[in-house]
Structures are given as structure tokens and as C-alpha cells.
């Protein structure tokens, strides 16, 4: 067992033998890169000049007043391409370049990670293929158009449920055949080690900024840090610099879809049990035979049947608390944030 690949009993490297040397190669290159000041400098250059960081930590005044507390919003939506996904893409694509890879592949659900990857690939002049479930290709036609405009090839995956997990399966299969010249950019805090660690490293910029911004605004750490959890990239990035601050409560919000007592949700920690999928051991929505169940959320980015292994560990340790929120509750909150009182 490769003990550094584990977060407690979660994580690992459950991939075919043909990818083990590839993972080792990525691990070595990654560890070297993050200790290389030139690499870090380049990464931060692109985050600032291309992505548009830092993002604001905005005090939602009326909302704060209404609930008798202070609520700050970390505006990751203001990044180039509209989500936090680009933070990780820039990091991994610079690593791919450093390793001499010429092709990039990625999986995408809603299309956010696909668009971010296609954007990064265009920026660094690399060939890019994005795997997307046939259902998602239909539902997210606009993002397919954006990816194609950026020069990426979008492969519509027709197998199993035709959604994100099937797109991920297909990306892994392609990677196993082409790893010599191809780098697989995983968008979520999942996958075999070192992916969960890499994604956290490249998303940790969210909490690094937020911590400093909060200190500047309030002169103290926040009481609670909260983020939504699908696979868990945004939330692990938001938690990263607060994990070792015992006074800060961490709350992850899972998608309860139509309710955790229905079969249509994505609450893998509330309703799943530990298992192995996409190279990692973590909480999974699965049936009694261990077959993976379909996840549902009104948010196309959260409908993944598993969760990153570090979240599973933080959950079991009690360091972070995870709560399920239904589609209806999420929509109500969105409207409350959007409309005048």
C-alpha cells in the first residue's frame, strides 16, 4: 500500500496496472513542480493576469442583517470562464506542459470543467478532447458550443447512463491507451492519487485569499466556512487553509435533489457507503451489488455519485460537517440572494 495515497481509509490508486507508472510519473513531476519557485510564479501569473484573481470576498449586507450575522461571499463565479474550475486547470496544464505532454483530455458534466479545460488548452496551444455524457451534451448545448469554439473536440459518450460518471469512465479508458503523450486533467477532488492532492493544491488559492481577506475585513478568522460539495473541488479549496484552524467550523453542503429519502439525490455522504470508483475509495451511492447509482441534482455540476476522499476523511473525523440540501431549498436560497427584499 502506498500510504501517502490515503486520507485515513479513503483514497488510494484503484486503476489498471497500465496506469500505475503514469501515476508515479505525475506524482514525481507534481511534487517537484510545487517546490519550484518558477513554476509557482508562473501559476500565480496566469491566475492574476488571465483568470482575473483575486476574487472578491463580498459582504452580503442585507442578507447579514436579516440573519443577524455577517455573511461573506467568496466570488469564484467571477473567475474567467465563470467558475473555480479554471484555478485547477491552469495548475494541471502547466504541469502537463512541464512533463512534455502535447494532448489534454478531460471529463465534464455541466460543462464548466470542460470549458475551463478547453480554454486552458487554447491558451497553451495544446490539443484538447473533452468527454461528455450524451445526456449532458443535449442539456448543456451552449457549453458544447463554447468548447468547440475554443478548438476542443467534444466526444459524446454513449454508455451506461450517458452522464458524468460515464464520461469519466471513457476519459480513463482513453488515458490508459494514450498516457505517453496525453495528460488527463481531472476537474474534481476525486480520482487516483495524486489527483485529489493536486486538485486541492491548485484550488487552495480560494481559502488562502479568503482567509487573508477575512482577516483584513474583520481582524479575525470566520466562525464558519461553508461550501457546496459535488465531487468536492470547490469545497476542498475553500476548506484547505482552514482545516488546521480548530476554531473554524467547516460545513459542506451536499445536493439532496428531490430529497434524501427518494432515489433522486447526490448526497453520497448522507446516504452512500464506502466503495471504489474512478480510482479512489470514498463514499458512493451504490446498490447492494456495488453497482453505482445515478445521482440527481438540479445543479448539473453536483450530480456525481461519489465525493473526494479527503471529504470522506474529514467527515469521519468530524472535522467537517456535511448537510444535504434539496433542489427546492437551493432554489429558494438562490432567489433570496438574487432578488430585492
Amino acid at each position: 500500500m502506498n500510504s501517502k495515497a490515503y486520507y485515513g481509509e479513503y483514497g488510494g490508486q484503484f486503476v489498471s496496472e497500465s496506469l500505475m507508472n503514469t501515476l508515479d510519473e505525475i506524482d514525481k513531476a507534481f511534487e517537484e513542480a510545487i517546490r519550484d519557485p518558477e513554476f509557482i510564479k508562473e501559476y500565480h501569473y496566469y491566475l492574476k493576469q488571465y483568470v482575473g484573481r483575486e476574487t472578491p470576498l463580498y459582504l452580503a449586507e442585507r442578507l447579514s442583517e436579516k440573519y443577524g450575522t455577517k455573511i461573506y461571499l467568496k466570488r469564484e463565479d467571477l473567475n474567467h470562464t465563470g467558475a473555480h474550475k479554471i484555478n485547477n486547470v491552469i495548475g494541471q496544464i502547466l504541469l502537463a506542459k512541464r512533463m512534455g505532454k502535447t494532448r489534454i483530455i478531460a471529463e465534464t458534466g455541466a460543462g464548466q470543467h470542460g470549458v475551463a479545460t478547453a480554454t486552458g488548452a487554447a491558451l497553451f496551444n495544446m490539443e484538447c478532447t473533452v468527454y461528455m455524457g450524451k445526456e449532458d451534451v443535449k442539456r448543456q448545448a451552449l457549453n458544447v458550443m463554447r468548447m468547440e469554439m475554443l478548438g476542443a473536440t467534444v466526444v459524446s459518450v454513449e454508455s451506461g447512463s450517458n452522464t458524468l460518471k460515464d464520461a469519466t469512465n471513457e476519459a480513463i479508458r482513453t488515458w490508459a491507451k494514450t498516457a505517453e503523450d496525453t495528460f488527463y486533467i481531472i476537474g474534481s477532488a476525486i480520482g487516483p492519487y495524486p489527483y485529489p492532492k493536486m486538485v486541492k493544491e491548485f484550488q487552495a488559492v480560494i481559502s488562502r485569499e479568503a482567509k487573508r481577506q477575512h482577516m483584513e475585513a474583520e481582524g479575525r478568522l470566520p466562525d464558519v466556512v461553508m461550501a457546496c460539495v459535488g465531487g468536492g473541488s470547490n469545497s476542498i479549496g475553500m476548506f484547505a487553509d482552514f482545516i488546521d484552524e480548530p476554531g473554524v467550523e467547516l460545513i459542506g453542503v451536499e445536493a439532496a435533489g428531490k430529497g434524501i429519502d427518494t432515489n433522486e439525490h447526490a448526497a453520497s455522504m448522507a446516504k452512500g457507503r464506502p466503495g471504489v470508483l474512478h480510482g479512489t475509495r470514498s463514499y458512493l451511492l451504490q446498490d447492494e451489488d456495488g453497482n453505482i447509482q445515478l445521482a440527481h441534482s438540479i445543479s448539473a455540476g453536483l450530480d456525481y455519485p461519489g465525493v473526494g476522499p479527503e471529504h470522506a476523511y474529514l467527515h469521519d473525523m468530524g472535522r467537517a460537517k456535511y448537510v444535504p440540501i434539496t433542489d427546492e431549498e437551493a432554489m429558494d436560497a438562490l432567489m433570496e440572494l438574487t432578488q430585492p427584499p
Binding site: 460518471k165 469512465n169 479508458r173 453505482i292
Partner: peptide
């Protein structure tokens, strides 16, 4: 198995139909 990542299309389809 629902997610046979080490198999090609023929066995994937066989697996899916069997389930």
C-alpha cells in the same frame, strides 16, 4: 459492473445488458 473502466465497448455493453 456498472462502471467497467478497464473494458472496451463490447464488454461494457455486455455488462450493461446483463445488469
Amino acid at each position: 459492473f456498472s462502471d467497467p473502466i478497464a473494458d472496451g465497448p463490447v464488454i461494457q455493453q455486455a455488462s450493461y445488458e446483463a445488469i
